[in-house]
């Protein structure tokens, strides 16, 4: 092996070289270490996903909440509302057959506000043209990965109430 004389360097000179070109040069070793750092970040991110619900439990509410009177929402119209104690926007939809549905207004793709289109009987997301079924909130087309979260609606004495749906326990 040829022993080309290499200038002796202190660790400080290696980390902070005097020559500019040397300072900007990214070696493969550094790149590999950077990849490993990113990989650590991913592991931390997965840990965060695992403990997030323990640290910040998702908002839930007990019993029924009054939303509006039946006559306030005409056929094919939408009534926006929020639940007290939460800032999540919901929409109450009166379908063309007269039944009510309540969905979270945030698209499950990138949280754009969705709207109900009565002539298509679909819920649309204008951002990337995501479509949800107005009857059950399932994804019909576009990038959204999950159905729209919904609330259960009941109508009594001309008043519309919502409640949390039964939690699907899949743990």
């Amino acid at each position: 092996m040829s022993s080309t004389p290499l200038p002796p360097r202190s660790p400080a000179e290696t980390d902070f070289p005097i020559d500019r070109a040397e300072a900007e040069h990214v070696t493969r070793r550094e790149f590999a270490k950077f990849l490993c750092l990113l990989s650590g970040g991913m592991a931390v991110g997965s840990g965060w996903v695992a403990v997030k619900d323990k640290i910040f439990p998702p908002f839930t509410f007990e019993g029924e909440r009054f939303v509006c009177n039946v006559e306030d929402v005409v056929f094919g119209a939408t009534h926006p509302f929020t639940i007290q104690g939460s800032r999540t926007p919901f929409i109450l939809i009166r379908l063309n057959d007269g039944s009510f549905r309540a969905y979270e207004q945030k698209c499950t793709h990138l949280a754009c506000a969705v709207y109900y289109s009565p002539d298509k009987n679909k819920i649309e997301c204008p951002c990337h043209h995501g479509y949800f079924d107005a009857n059950d909130g399932k994804v019909l087309a576009g990038p959204p990965p999950r159905p729209l979260p919904h609330l259960e609606v009941s109508v009594r004495d001309g008043k519309v109430f919502v409640r949390e749906p039964e939690r699907k326990e899949r743990t």
């Binding site: 490993c36 990989s39 650590g40 991913m42 592991a43 991110g45 997965s46 840990g47 996903v49 695992a50 619900d53 499950t108 999950r146 939690r167 699907k168 899949r170 743990t171």
Partner: peptide, 19 residues
Amino acid sequence: LDGNNAVKWPAFIASSVLF
């Protein structure tokens, strides 16, 4: 986010092992 919590812990463990 879909309410299925069975995946998150195994995913975290797998990710840590990979790291």
